[in-house]
Design a protein around this nucleic acid. Structure first.
Lengths: 152, 152
DNA sequence: GAAGACGTCATCCTTTGGTATGGATCTGCT
DNA sequence: AGCAGATCCATACCAAAGGATGACGTCTTC
């Protein structure tokens, strides 16, 4: 889970660094062309065109990198569990078990039987769960948990 | 349905047209600055910097537009509603509306408010719904409906 | 025009869910 | 040793959900 944070930050740094390198490389390349081939009067329009196209492409690429995670959260595209979101939510192991059974439509009593605990305990867990998810009903909890990728 | 395709194509055209307009506007702006203020020797690096930043931003914006469309299409395929299953289930239009709101975590009272009908009517619909889905609770109904592809 | 599906609403009753509060262990960490 | 968090359980109360039953009007369909 901590590894996930590292990976994401590293990903962001990588993107920014590559962006800077691309910009530097472009300047160098233009200068090189200018002096190497003695073409001193390349029109400004040509420069603008080249730069505009290249950096539009770069922007699209960067945007897709940076926006992907956000969109996955919104739509829940990856049916995978977001470990990082799970950690951030502060939901404990037992609470998650209750949540998962809730999501399959089990009643509190059925959850209690399945986990070999009492009904009040299930209620206790679910109440804590609702607080942490900032919801008031189990259906809302399941919906939010799915959209956040806390459960599959 | 057909309207949706039209909208999408129109959206794409809009994006491309705006892109071209932005490019043209930038060239005009630079020329304007160049001749209006008699600054003939603005360094190429400045041009590159301005263009790069602007078009990177433009690229990110375009990318988000295009990516979102693509992703919506993907999601539409995977999270598609099974019309046939819906027909077989015998669920009526109003019942489906109630079911969809249930799936987002709404209470019966909230559903009643949203559909401009009374609480007993919502209960009536949901009771019929549970019979047709062969379930006993709303959470179970939502879970089964999703697995059957009755709702997205 | 009778039958049936649909949508609407109501009343009464039971079950389930959720909140509040408090207490008991146990474990891991400082 | 002591604290924090997790897990477990209990009681009591209130809110929401669900089941049963009946009723009424509108449509479509046969």
């Amino acid at each position: 889970m901590a590894a996930s944070v590292q990976t994401r930050r590293a990903g962001f740094r990588t993107t920014v660094v590559l962006y800077g390198l691309a910009l530097a490389a472009l300047v160098v390349a233009l200068k090189y062309i200018e002096y190497r081939f003695l073409i001193r009067d390349l029109s400004v329009e040509v420069y603008i065109g080249v730069v505009a196209v290249l950096f539009t492409a770069l922007g699209i690429w960067m945007g897709s990198k940076l926006l992907r995670r956000k969109q996955e959260e919104q739509v829940g595209v990856s049916h995978q569990v977001d470990e990082e979101a799970l950690r951030r939510s502060g939901i404990s192991g037992r609470e998650l078990e209750v949540l998962q059974l809730m999501a399959t439509g089990r009643s509190n009593q059925e959850i209690a039987n399945q986990l070999f605990i009492s009904l009040p305990t299930v209620k206790s867990h679910s109440s804590n769960l609702f607080m942490k998810l900032e919801v008031r009903r189990r259906t809302e909890a399941v919906h939010k948990a799915k959209s956040l990728g806390l459960i599959a």
